[in-house]
Amino acid sequence: MEPEQAPDSAGPEYVLHLFITGATPNSTQAVRNLQDICERYLPGRCELQIVDIYQQPELARAERIVAAPTLIKKQPGLVRFLVGDLSDRRRVLSLLGLVPDPNDPYLHD
């Protein structure tokens, strides 16, 4: 499933920052979705940071957060803002450059 290894992997391959707003439905859903993706597709390859901007509002400005929840893909490639609760699994995977796993139960809902 994971054919290519990053050749110069000083750090983790994927750096993902998820900004959530407390325990709102969208946020909990996003956390759940992202954790599932990381476990299923990126075990050990990803540095995941979850920030509650209610707790650290100053980060919202620094990280240019407008919508919530927002997943910022810092690496690899271009910085991307994935806005929403990450329920659109196919879209999320394609944005992260991952190939969908046919066994993924969330792919077809």
Binding site: P57, V83, D85, S87, R91
Partner: peptide, 28 residues
């Protein structure tokens, strides 16, 4: 507070709101 919104950087992947904006504004 400069709110930079760039369509090319933003992808929508599900339900969301603009709470980030609220928090930034509230914090400011």
């Amino acid at each position: 507070d400069h709110v930079h919104v760039d369509r090319s950087e933003i992808e929508e992947t599900g339900e969301y709101d603009l709470e980030g904006l609220f928090i930034r504004l509230g914090y400011a």
